[in-house]
Design a protein around this nucleic acid. Structure first.
Lengths: 150, 150
DNA sequence: TGAAACTGGACCGCTTGGGTCCGGTTAACC
DNA sequence: GGTTAACCGGACCCAAGCGGTCCAGTTTCA
């Protein structure tokens, strides 16, 4: 299904939320419990996401009392590709990308190493979209008549 | 990891192989056992892939003795997006795409409905690549300047 | 010194993809 | 007309990975 993990989805939500309340980067930090509350994502999950974003250099963490997280860069400077890579690892569609690991039928494979083409296309597409683009839809907080269509 | 399923990977391999031996569409069909042999993919798996490709209209199946499969269109007319959609279902990165099903925190979600942007970008990227492009790898053609965007 | 918050790791259940198997149906061939 | 070869359409099982949780440790502020 070519899906992105839920964690990556949460990461985008959390990052946008993180920017929404602290439009200046040096303002007060936000804690993971508060982010969990404002996003509706369970707190331990938020913590896990923030941790991954921290090691990836997308957010800054501040330990101790009055600690928390804040954005390290502006939303405009963070691409979706970076977020996905931070959470789910490098963007690689198949196992046999650049011959990394055991493609046991490589000798027979008619498209060996050609997924790189697809990978690059996807990567370029994701790099071209920033978190700021994602936020645009969210700002009208009365978001589109919540039709619980089911 | 934004991965594509192995089945979709196999599908591409099988389709390219299917075209390699029958460059004219009306030639003899190929059976799933023979495709399994020439691609190295287990036969039941090949059969499953071919079945899915058949219902998607990418290959034609011929039942009975001397039956088998053949391409319904040329490789140049089949995009990677179609193959992935045939195997893994519609290309949708997250569950909440176009509000399909239960995003239980939709009211809080700051990027509600914005993944469509990413989905479209991915879909366009995948639609622009055909199976013929994938096949080119068989010959040592360095037809691109594959600049990894990172 | 205690409380608040991040850090790092382990852990677990569930979903889902990958793979297999079997009976049924169709069509060519003898 | 019977046999055989191949697809068809399920059901089924196993393992890996993901989502989610928990806990002990560390850091910092009041």
């Amino acid at each position: 299904m070519l899906r992105v993990s839920k964690l990556a989805d949460y990461a985008v939500v959390v990052l946008v939320k993180l920017a929404a309340d602290t439009d200046c980067l040096d303002c007060a930090v936000q804690t993971s419990p508060s982010l969990a509350c404002s996003t509706g994502v369970p707190e331990p999950t938020v913590a896990k996401v923030l941790k991954a974003l921290s090691v990836a250099g997308l957010v800054l963490s501040q330990r101790g009392a009055r600690g928390g997280y804040r954005l390290q860069r502006k939303l405009e400077d963070i691409s979706i590709a970076e977020v996905i890579a931070a959470i789910d690892g490098p963007i690689a569609l198949t196992a046999c990308v650049d011959g990394a690991s055991g493609c046991d039928v490589r000798g027979l494979c008619a498209v060996h190493g050609r997924w790189d083409l697809v990978n690059d296309a996807i990567r370029n597409a994701l790099t071209g979209i920033t978190l700021a683009d994602m936020r645009e839809a969210g700002t009208p907080v009365f978001l589109r008549t919540l039709t619980p269509a089911e």
